[in-house]
C-alpha cells in the first residue's frame, strides 16, 4: 500500500523532492501535458534583443492559457450578444448583470458618472480576463496564468499606465504631478513627501501584481502539498484527509478566484479615479 513519488511525478523529477515537484507544476513551461496526446511542444523562438534586453517571445503554456481565456470570453459574449435582445435571458442576463455591477458598483462610485461609463469597458475586460484566468487554474489540465508573476505584473503595468494617462489627461501633466503631493503639506516637508509619493506610485501596482500572484499561487501550493502528503508519508490512510482538505481548499480557491478578480478591478478603478480626482 505504498505509492512512490515516481508514480505521481514525471520521471525527470524522480530524484527531487516535493517542493520542486510543486514548483514545476506551478511554473510556466514550453509544453502542455494533455491526456492521450501526451506532451504538446509549444513553439519556441530564439530570444530577440529589445532595448538591450533579451526577450523570449516563445509561446509558453501561460501564453496559451491567456489566449484560451480570451477566446472563451469573446465567444461567450459574441454568442450571447450577437442578436440584440431587449430582455436578456440565461447567460446574457448573467454577463449583463456582472457588467452592470462593474459599471454601477465599481466604475461610477470611483470615477464619477461620466468617466465611470467611459472606463467600464476597460474595467469589465480586466475583470473577466482575470476571473476566467483564475477559474481556468482550477480546471485540471489547464495552468494558472495569474499564478505567474509576469502576467500579474503585466496587468498591473496596464493599470499603472491607465492611471498616469488618465490623471494627466484630466488634470494636465503639471496639475497631475502637483496633485501627487497632498494639500496642506508644509513646504519644508516636500523633500520627504515627493520621494514618498513617487514611491507610492509604484508600490500600488506592485501590490496589485503581488496580491493576485500570491493568492493564486498559494492555493495551488496548498492543494499540491496536501496531495503530496500521500506520497511523502507513503501511506494511503492519509488520503481521506488530504483529499478532503484539498477539496476544501479548492472550493476556497473558487471563492478567491472571484474575490481577487473583483479586488484587482476595484483597486484599478480606485487608483484611476484617485488620479483623475485628486481632491477625493
Amino acid at each position: 500500500m505504498t505509492l512512490s513519488l515516481a508514480q505521481l511525478a514525471p520521471e525527470e523529477h524522480q530524484s527531487e523532492g516535493l517542493g520542486s515537484f510543486i514548483r514545476h507544476h506551478l511554473a510556466n513551461s514550453n509544453e502542455w501535458n494533455l491526456p492521450f496526446i501526451g506532451h504538446v511542444h509549444l513553439p519556441t523562438f530564439e530570444p530577440i534583443t529589445l532595448f538591450g534586453m533579451q526577450v523570449d517571445l516563445s509561446i509558453t503554456l501561460h501564453v496559451v492559457m491567456l489566449w484560451i481565456a480570451s477566446l472563451f470570453i469573446v465567444l461567450a459574449f459574441w454568442l450571447t450578444f450577437r442578436k440584440p435582445n431587449p430582455v436578456p435571458r440565461g447567460l446574457a442576463a448573467v454577463l449583463e448583470s456582472i457588467v452592470l455591477f462593474v459599471r454601477d458598483e465599481i466604475a461610477i462610485p470611483n470615477m464619477g458618472e461620466k468617466h465611470g461609463k467611459q472606463m467600464t469597458p476597460f474595467l469589465s475586460t480586466l475583470f473577466f480576463f482575470i476571473l476566467v484566468l483564475n477559474l481556468m487554474g482550477l480546471i485540471p489540465l489547464f495552468s494558472t496564468a495569474t499564478g505567474n508573476i509576469s502576467v500579474t505584473a503585466g496587468l498591473a503595468v496596464i493599470t499603472f499606465i491607465m492611471t498616469q494617462v488618465n490623471g494627466m489627461r484630466e488634470n494636465g501633466v503639471f496639475g497631475y504631478l502637483k496633485s501627487l503631493v497632498p494639500h496642506g503639506v508644509p513646504v519644508f516637508l516636500f523633500p520627504i513627501m515627493i520621494p514618498i509619493e513617487i514611491l507610492g506610485l509604484f508600490t500600488k501596482p506592485f501590490a496589485l501584481a503581488v496580491r493576485l500572484f500570491a493568492n493564486m499561487t498559494a492555493g495551488h501550493t496548498v492543494i499540491f502539498a496536501l496531495l503530496g502528503l500521500i506520497a511523502v508519508l507513503a501511506t494511503l490512510f492519509v488520503s481521506p484527509f488530504s483529499i478532503g482538505f484539498a477539496l476544501f481548499i479548492n472550493l476556497l480557491e473558487l471563492l478567491i478566484a472571484f474575490i481577487q478578480a473583483y479586488i484587482f478591478t476595484v483597486l484599478s478603478a480606485l487608483f484611476i479615479g484617485m488620479a483623475m480626482h485628486p481632491q477625493h
Binding site: 510556466n28 491567456l66 469573446v74 459574449f77 459574441w78 467600464t120 503595468v157 496596464i158
Partner: peptide
Amino acid sequence: PGMMIWTWVTFLVLLLVLRKVAW
C-alpha cells in the same frame, strides 16, 4: 519580459475585440 509583452498584447487585443463584440 516576453510573458509580460504577451500579456499586454493579449489584453489589448481582447479589449479591442470585446469593445466591438460585447461592450
